[in-house]
Amino acid sequence: MNVVTPPDKLTPKDFATDQEVRWCPGCGDYAILKAMQRTLPDIGATKENTVFVSGIGCAARFPYYMATYGFHTIHGRAPAVATGIKLANPDLDVWVVTGDGDALSIGGNHLLHVLRRNVNLQILLFNNEIYGLTKGQYSPTSRAGTRSPSTPWGSIETPVSATAFALGAGARFVARSVDTMQSHLPEVFKRAHEHIGASFVEIFQNCIVYNDGVFSQFTARDVADDSEILLEHGKPLIFGKERTLGLRVKPGLFELEVVTIGKDGVTEKDILIHDETNRGLADMLARMEQPTFPVAIGVIYCLPSPSYEDGVKAHMIEAKKLGAGNDINALLRRGHTWTIPG
């Protein structure tokens, strides 16, 4: 009798390929790769059922380093390729890895539509506010005034907020994390993976060569507590080293303000409770910027709704039930035919 031994639980190592990782030393992508390789065993992912799809850019090399199926496609189009994969086989677990230029410039249209359609996959946007692979030009998320080889006088464009864009496109799961947050990142990946529908995760990722420290005014260890707010569903929106800062609705106005608990009569009761399912709150949290507000980190919005593939599947079942059958010879003879006698 054969003894079937249950396969050992996969480890992060099982998800690493033998390919030499070619990102610049110190690139934030290494940390994200590590977090992903740690996450997959925990969520019970299998190598054969997992597919990483990317476009073009530094982030887009990600699939080559994951020992799963992987498709490194063309610039901006990963969401479209991933949609086709899900149409053909909805059971595959698809992760799209993209960057700020890939997702929000050349591929902006596809990102809009994959989110709007709610295709059941995860999109990880590595935002470093710069074009790295083409040597440092400003990107659509670069702040106004960014000096780069193509903007020697400083960028004159208003940057796009990735999370506000995602919410505007109708995304039902929007979250944020930071490359260096090694315990937070896997938790966000798990939440994104759990969510049925298109999950959008923006990861602030440091480009050590062309945009080093661009997020440090809120991610640096000494300032993070006072300039980031970690969102937790059902918990008050409190932050700060002393946990005395909080967010509340400004009296008489439809906007948020930062208040200090214990000051001007503000108590913890005045502080807003985070509700992931509240779209209006999500919009305001996504738009919070330094220095007026802390930067929101964590799950900003999560409201599950049926995925695109579920809709297709439902129509398929309906068509098979109500349609005229699947005999091709009969199909060719639908409508008017006539016979010439022999």
Binding site: V51, A80, K86, L87, L92, N109, H110, K320, G323, N326
Partner: peptide
């Protein structure tokens, strides 16, 4: 013709149309 296991997808543009078709072939359709 969905009863013939045909999935149709009206993509957002021509590029998405071919890219999703490539994705479908990659996944075995």
């Amino acid at each position: 013709l969905m009863e013939f296991d045909v999935v149709t997808f009206q993509a957002e543009d021509e590029i998405a149309a071919i890219c999703s078709a490539i994705g479908a072939s990659y996944a075995g359709a």
